[in-house]
Design a protein around this nucleic acid. Sequence first.
RNA 1: GUGGUUAUAGCUCAGUUGGUUAGAGCACCGGAUUGUGAUUCCGGGGGUCGCCGGUUCAAAUCCGGUUAGCCACCCCA
Length: 440
Amino acid sequence: MFKTLPGFRDFYPEECSLRNHLFRIWRKTAQSFSFKEYDGPILEPLELFKQKSGDEIVSQLFSFEDQGGRAVALRPEMTPSLARMIGAKANALRRPIKWFCIEENFRYERKQKGRLRSFYQFNADIFGEPGPGADAEVIGTLIHSLSVMGLTEQDFVIRISDRHLWVLYLKSLGLDESSIFGVLGLVDKLERMPREVLLEKLTPYFHDAAEDFLIKVDTLTNIRELSDLVTFFKAHVSDAGLSAALADRLDAWNSLIHRLKAMGMGGFLRIDLGIVRGLAYYTGFVFEAFDIQGEHRAIAGGGRYDHLVKKLGGPDLPAVGFAMGDVVIKDLLSEKGLLPNYVQAPDVYVVIGSDEVLQAALGQVQSLRLAGFAVEYPIRTIGFGKQFKAANESGARWAAIFGEDEHARGAAKLKNLTTGEEVEVSFGRLAESLLDLDQQ
RNA sequence: GUGGUUAUAGCUCAGUUGGUUAGAGCACCGGAUUGUGAUUCCGGGGGUCGCCGGUUCAAAUCCGGUUAGCCACCCCA
């Protein structure tokens, strides 16, 4: 017997229903926020991903040479394809460009909790708007989708940080550009790395001041109030030019938070400069959604990436977006008992009394199907009692009973399978009656 | 890529110091039931005991290897 490849999943009807439940919420949310749906190829030139993420990425891709000798890869994420699509038509697209996508991605990694080799993602991005209003809209979309799933302020939090703020701060400490990225990489590992190791790795950048820096970082990453953030930078940054830039950033923070509060989402936000995000292309606000208990990896993550479209050969177009995978969120919802118990069921189960009425019954089956009802009936001849059992187990709301007595009168009985009530209806009025009865 | 841990029916598991034809519950299928769903009863299908090798008169059981699952590290777009 064959098995799925490691990290790949079969979706039996039940799991498929759950997947569709997520997709439905994602799609509905994106549409509520007026994002337009797009899609791109699942297979791309390997070079596209190398250009965005560097040569190291190749070992984490499903890549191969096609029959035409092209180096290709299954997409590990949507952003490069999206940046290409946006770049190619940037001048023709009305701003702001708000697009979303629900796509399957592939990453050649060892699987573990919350991480598979094939997974689905919900991506929502806004292009062409540099101000914090776009960031607020994107974060709002993320919060809304999680809320619609039934999660509350007791369940998840959005940790918000700002790479630009970090860069300005590190500049004020006299670091050059490459050192800044190095240090940010270490800040990202703050929660996971032992303090001694961290200190050791910071020493090349700060020498004797490493410990002092680490203490300041502790202070900074523990700040939860915007006013404290303002106070911190007033106290620690004196350079006039940087101060002005910092003031601009803090204004942006103010705007972002007030917008989200105005949307009634203030309770989900947590200022947390400890979030930096792995890759270097983020340029402003960055954020991640976590479960409150902190038992899962990030539910979703995103941020501002103002230079990526240009890096991938497009125009210089500011951008902000996020992605949410299906794996962690499904684990969390399952834990919270928030996964609905969807059953794929027909509306009507047709009970066929005997072979004599089969023809008439099939005719009515087709009429009901044309009228939009999902209809099931026994494909082979089985006993009357058995058919009711099958009707019940099918999950149908209605049984339509085609018996010989009723057939003689040109009618069938409709039985409500929940209440047991029956009513006789002539053939021509079956669909109409079902609609009426469903209203009651 | 590294380390830990597990593997018996579709699922959850039992299987004694190695000893007859490997079991249970649930699920599935059929019947009791030729015009009404429950319950119940009867019956049935389904296993290379993950795989390969070794020890032994005899292996689900002991040993070695291997593959896969789970968990953690690395990485995390």
